[in-house]
């Protein structure tokens, strides 16, 4: 069992009223799954993904990640947990503009305190694997959207996470680029990486092994 959500509630208070963003979410994820979260805009997809990724908190319920109770551990410990096991991919890539491709890839390793030689080897490996060795000294602004997302995925993968969380990874790409990225996800999943993606597109959701549908913060 990779992770387990139990009666998760999340709300905000607005004008004296409690507005629920997530309402009684329960599900489990096993290692090796490829899950797609679907639902209309504002249904809480991204919020759920952020809760799973521990970037956002929740107000009620229990969350076990690799048998660690996420809801009751300290921030530092939590940071260690997601730094170790989770990689993020964003719709708008979120690469650091001031850093080159190579340096962007290197950054997660810095926070994990890898040695210099090791980092170099891993970065080289990743550049090789994604076929972007020629671009390693370019800045993000010099790449196309698909290439940027490729770097984003490479960055998420570089520290060998157990789980990849992708928030509409193809949202900013054209269909051809999108298909390539999805193929890549499929391939990664076959290699054993667990993936949870948020998507609007039925076609992309079909790559996954299971679909979770959300409406107004509730699973249906």
């Amino acid at each position: 069992m990779l992770l387990q959500l139990h009666n998760i509630f999340k709300w905000v208070n607005s004008g004296g009223q409690r507005i629920f963003l997530l309402k009684d979410i329960n599900f489990e994820v096993r290692e090796g799954e490829f899950i797609s979260i679907m639902g209309p805009s504002g249904s809480g997809k991204s919020t759920l993904l952020n809760v799973i990724g521990m970037l956002d908190g929740f107000d009620e319920g229990e969350y076990q990640f690799l048998d660690e109770p996420v809801h009751s551990i300290k921030e530092k410990h939590r940071a260690n947990l997601y730094k170790e096991y989770i990689g993020f991919v964003f719709q708008s890539y979120h690469l650091l503009d001031e850093l080159t491709v190579k340096e962007n890839l290197e950054m997660p390793l810095l926070y994990k305190k890898y040695k210099g030689a090791e980092r170099k080897a891993m970065v080289a490996d990743m550049l090789d694997r994604f076929n972007i060795v020629g671009k390693k000294d370019l800045f993000p602004a010099q790449l196309s959207g698909g290439q940027q997302q490729l770097v984003g995925i490479a960055r998420a993968l570089i520290s060998n996470p157990k789980l990849i969380l992708a928030d509409e990874p193809t949202g900013n790409l054209n269909s051809k680029q999108g298909e390539e990225i999805m193929q890549l996800f499929k391939q990664l999943n076959d290699e054993g990486v667990t993936i949870i993606q948020v998507t609007h597109s039925e076609k992309n959701a079909a790559y996954g092994s299971r679909i979770i549908n959300l409406l107004d913060g509730r699973m249906i």
Binding site: G53, K76, A79, K83, E84, F88, L96, E98, P108, Y111
Partner: peptide
């Protein structure tokens, strides 16, 4: 802001 957010999701803690 983007840099800060990104660094945090990559595992940077407050102190860093």
């Amino acid at each position: 802001l983007k840099e800060i957010g990104m660094r945090k999701t990559l595992g940077a803690v407050k102190r860093q």
